[in-house]
Amino acid sequence: MTGEAIAFYALAAVILVSGLVVVSSPNIVHSAVALVPAFLGITGIYILLGAEFVAGIQVLIYAGAITVLLLFVIMLTEGGTGLRLQQRNEQGPVGASVAVAIAVLLIAGVTHTTWGRGAGTLPAYTPGAIGQSFLGTNLLAFEGTSIVLLVSLIGAVIIARKEE
């Protein structure tokens, strides 16, 4: 077993265990905090896949910003997230069977397909290649994403603001 395989299975175990805590913990704060190891494990997966820039962005945005945002909202809505409250609805068995069915379907699909190898190698310096691509062939997607980001942030401020 190579080092890459050991790292992959260790990271997968971290992701799956913390993901289980996220979806099953009766305490919503535990769920939010368990998101951090899940996101960091996915960061490790990105590094294994040679996507260092995406890994850095993942740490900054997911493990940093989104988790803190979730924790802030949990604190601001204390009355709705209290420990005594029932956190799960009555669809437990249905939801579990749907999720298991989707997982089985996807796993059967990917394991029964023969995946070809693409030609070429990853660029030696992926951040540079990503920057070139964002300001070259993908300029429209880049600008569209920035407009969506601007609009959604203004919208979030307006929605969350207190009504006069």
Partner: peptide, 13 residues
């Protein structure tokens, strides 16, 4: 796929 199913379970329940 497994992470996706976990997220789906959380959304549904």
């Amino acid at each position: 796929a497994v992470v996706f199913a976990l997220g789906l379970y959380a959304v549904l329940t």
